[in-house]
Amino acid sequence: MEETGIESEFVSLLCFRQKHDYKFGRSDLYFICIMKAKTLDIRPCPNEVKACQWMKIEDFASHPDVTDTNRFIIKSYMESLKHEHHIVPTDVLDYRRKITQPIYSIKAQTDY
């Protein structure tokens, strides 16, 4: 929403990566989530986004500027659709049994 103005809702976690000693000597966790757009009108933040547009996933995957990392993420997304399994949260009581916490696990699409 912040960068594109597109309202969306969380569907599932797709993948993540961790790097130690990344920028500024810090560790970095990078999460990719599958989101469902609730609006289609793009209103990019001019301070953060130079340009953005909707694209067919095949066009994005074949674009010469797309990195190997993003190609891997696209492949992972296509596999998740094919096998209909996703990493989704389930609220579970914490050890004190006073509040719930989201536990992410792999589930078949029909389970949620």
Rank of each mutant, 00 (worst) to 15 (best):
M1W: 04
M1G: 13
M1S: 08
E2A: 09
E2K: 15
E3P: 00
T4G: 04
G5I: 02
G5E: 00
I6E: 05
E7N: 09
E7W: 07
E7C: 08
S8Y: 06
E9Q: 07
E9N: 03
E9Y: 01
E9D: 07
E9C: 06
F10N: 03
F10L: 14
F10R: 12
F10Q: 04
V11F: 05
V11T: 03
S12M: 02
S12L: 03
L13V: 02
L14D: 02
L14C: 06
L14V: 00
L14T: 01
L14K: 00
C15E: 08
C15H: 11
C15Y: 08
C15R: 14
R17N: 15
R17M: 13
Q18M: 12
Q18K: 14
K19C: 03
H20R: 14
D21Q: 13
D21E: 14
D21G: 09
Y22C: 07
K23S: 08
K23R: 14
K23W: 11
F24A: 10
F24N: 12
F24D: 11
F24M: 10
R26W: 10
R26D: 10
S27W: 13
D28L: 15
D28G: 10
D28S: 14
L29R: 14
Y30S: 13
F31K: 11
F31E: 11
F31A: 12
F31G: 05
I32C: 11
I32H: 13
I32D: 04
C33A: 13
C33T: 09
I34W: 04
I34F: 06
I34R: 02
M35H: 13
M35Y: 07
K36R: 15
K36M: 11
K36T: 08
K36E: 14
A37S: 11
A37K: 06
A37H: 07
K38S: 06
T39H: 07
T39M: 07
T39Y: 05
T39F: 04
L40M: 05
L40H: 09
D41Y: 07
D41A: 09
I42Y: 04
I42Q: 04
I42T: 00
R43K: 14
R43G: 01
R43H: 13
P44A: 01
P44W: 02
P44L: 01
C45F: 05
C45H: 13
C45W: 05
C45G: 09
C45Q: 11
P46G: 10
P46W: 06
P46K: 09
E48A: 06
E48D: 12
E48I: 02
V49R: 01
V49Y: 08
K50M: 13
A51N: 15
A51F: 15
A51V: 10
A51Y: 14
C52S: 11
C52G: 05
W54S: 03
M55G: 00
M55S: 12
M55A: 09
M55C: 07
K56Y: 11
K56S: 10
K56I: 03
I57R: 00
I57H: 00
I57N: 03
I57K: 00
E58H: 03
E58P: 02
E58K: 10
E58M: 01
D59A: 11
D59V: 06
D59F: 03
A61M: 05
A61H: 05
S62Y: 06
S62M: 12
H63T: 04
H63K: 05
P64Q: 10
P64V: 12
D65H: 08
D65P: 02
